[in-house]
Write a protein that binds this DNA or RNA. Sequence first.
RNA 1: GCGGGCGUGAUGGAAUGGUAGACAUACCAGACUUAAAAUCUGAGGGGCGUAUGCCCGUGUGGGUUCGAGUCCCACCGCCCGCACCA
Length: 851
Amino acid sequence: MSRYDATSVEQKWQEAWEKAGSFAAKRDESKPKYYVLEMFPYPSGRIHMGHVRNYTMGDVIARYKLATGHNVLHPMGWDAFGMPAENAAMASGGHPKDWTYQNIADMKSQMKPMGWSLDWTREFATCDPDYYGQQQSMFIDFLQKGLVYRKNAVVNWDPVDMTVLANEQVIDGKGWRSGAAVERRELTQWFFKISDYSEELLDAIDRLDNWPAKVKLMQANWIGKSRGLQFAFSLIDGPTGHDRIEVFTTRPDTLMGASFIGISPDHPLAKVLERHDPKIAEFNAEARKGGTTEEAMETAEKLGYDTGLRVRHPFDNAWELPVYIANFILMDYGTGAIFGCPAHDQRDLDFARKYDLQVIDTFVAAEGGAPVKNEAFVPPKTASVKWLKAFAWDELATGEEAIEAAIGFCESKGVGFGVTKFRLRDWGLSRQRYWGCPIPVVHCDTCGVVPEKKENLPVRLPDDVTFDKPGNPLDRHPTWRDVACPTCGQPAKRETDTMDTFVDSSWYFARFTAPRAETPTSLPDADYWMNVDQYIGGIEHAILHLLYSRFFARAMHICGHLPAKAIEPFDALFTQGMVTHEIYVTRDENDRPVYHLPEDIEWTESGARLGASGQSVEVIPSAKMSKSKKNVVDPVNIIQQYGADTARWFVLSDSPPERDVEWTASGADAAFKHLSRVWRTASDIVAATGSGQGDDDLLRAMHKTIHDVTTGIESFGFNAAIAKLYAFTNMLAKSSAGAAAKKQAMTTLAQLMSPMTPHLAEEIWSLMGQKGLIVEASWPVADPQMLIEDTVTLPVQVNGKRRSEITVAKDMPPEEVEKLVLQDDAVKKALEQGPLKKLIVVPGRIVNVVI
RNA sequence: GCGGGCGUGAUGGAAUGGUAGACAUACCAGACUUAAAAUCUGAGGGGCGUAUGCCCGUGUGGGUUCGAGUCCCACCGCCCGCACCA
């Protein structure tokens, strides 16, 4: 028997689909549309197994929807701006543009053999001037609608390289190239007013019915709505202009437990103080060292500096509290100042113990409450506690009740007012880098900040730049910067910052609906294709990318670029897991790890060893495939060895799609063996003739499989669907049914497999003598009559443990079942132990006898 | 540190609160073969037993329920995100 030749089969059908234009989407009002989109890739130059998994999942959905009569849009493009292109240029001297477009060409040539049903006619890269020009046009629209503004914000500053660093370029508080301690420095930057939409973005989460609950929860927590009190402490003998310190607290109920005031090193008062006090200046300078991330702030040692200033407690003029500058207080959140209540906040308690400050219990546990020692008492806000320092509520009250009462009381006394704050900050989009979308504004001494005229768009990136020194080449470009002011015509300077790449990815889904339009979108196309019916990508995008896109869709709607129905652009979201692999490591002479590629490993009885030298290799449990750990399997090699269908089948088969899947050589081999077996079985069936036995059983199983696989695909249970296909293939291969029934079963099997292994499916379809392409055939429908079972086997439990089973007619009334159960030998035996307490019959499910 | 998630045989995993381990991998046994590969058949959570069977078992410890892998609480471990990685 000849071997299944994946390479030639796959190429043949890819050419057939290409010729038939099977995947080019066109507006067709007569059919229901379906827009399936996977998060577009960064053009690193090589596809990896994560891409294979992501795009194969989308492809299963796309092909299934195509077969169920939908007009499917399944596009692909490139998230092509970003730092790696500049890093490559710095490392090897090329140009980011050449590097990027070459990578796109390379990756596309690796993706094509996968046989994904992509509409390549809509392809674009975000670094195409056509695309970023439209983005610039929208930026100007946003500016006119007040959705963009400028303000100061801190960046990571490398004092040696004199350049801004990304968070990932800050390692342990030091610049990745220079090794210098990173400082936080303020720059004037552009921001999107996403915070204006905090409430709206939060409320709308409830209507995202087909998003994972965890993503919705993460977004809600990120937006972080909180109710609290804003009020001021009066400052005693403060510097001129500083007679009060405004604070925001979510726990006004603990006001009587306050023991210190903390202000951010970037607080206006701290900045005044540092001008006159070298020690404060030194403390602030030290506090400003390190990266800007929240993580860096919160894991750093909590330090404070006693300014010597004091404030009065709002309820007691005689009560004075010290004012500390503290390195863990963010200027960006609230007012940049807090009061510390050590008894009910662990961070405040640690701080109080360190600087020997008072700890005042304001409440204790309702029963057996003890004073706080080294662990703050922080019960849930819904728990009732016993109050020692209540000032407007009962002795026993929950935190929630006390907070509301405290706000009301403070308002009535003229001490501050209740406010709702959000954690969500405005979206800073300025990047001091070359390889991004230029911000289309001009700085004029006379007119100020002026948007570029739309007819001058796109503002193109100049090609003649070098990367031989750190910093933004646009900033030192000899002529690109110098322009005439669009308003007054006087000499002016271009903005040299470019946009965050999140901007590029916040509207690409809309652009795919009309990728060549001369406006950002074309409304008839957007109206037809939007929303994305199914969006698929990694959980790592759960917050930023998805939240920014939700904001952007609203902003685009305001500017007339999207219909109202598209303000929530993704109807359904699915977050798939990663592809992982074991890691193989040896040690060099200095005991440093040396990683090895899977293909260099040989397996012997004593374990893994290096194929070349025979050196034994340590095997570390699976982790996400990464180049640095060398635990990567190149999809290109898998396609060459087994074909695309095998890779597609494997990434779908073993694990549930939302979880990580571990790539194993044996698993890939098994996938290939199975597909070969299906092909062999099909070849046998073609040759078979005559009648046999068990036609009905086979056809019943076929209808059950149609039902199960259809359900599996619709619910993203691809691994479960594949398990059913395995089971049905096993049955079919062993079946002694007649030729006609087997042929029918095999044809259906091919259709059910076609979303996963489309090439093999086409091959079998044609082998079975079917006309046309399977990709044009309608999805099989299960006959409900064939799914009905006459009898059902019920497990019989005694006290929750399975002891027997009975087989009864499916529709037998529970009373009848009870009678039968009581006659069962195992039940009779159990009843000797004691009287029957309860008999539970769950129809069609289970029986439980409680003794 | 904060927010979110996950944890089931040797391995990947299955299981609307209802028979734990479907389906697959590895290993083992058998068939075919001069032999190997390929292919086919079978056994298969652990313990005791020839077997019908009995006991134990879903990270750990509690709880709810007739019944918990599934729900609740605490803990342990791993993973994702933390606003300039994409």
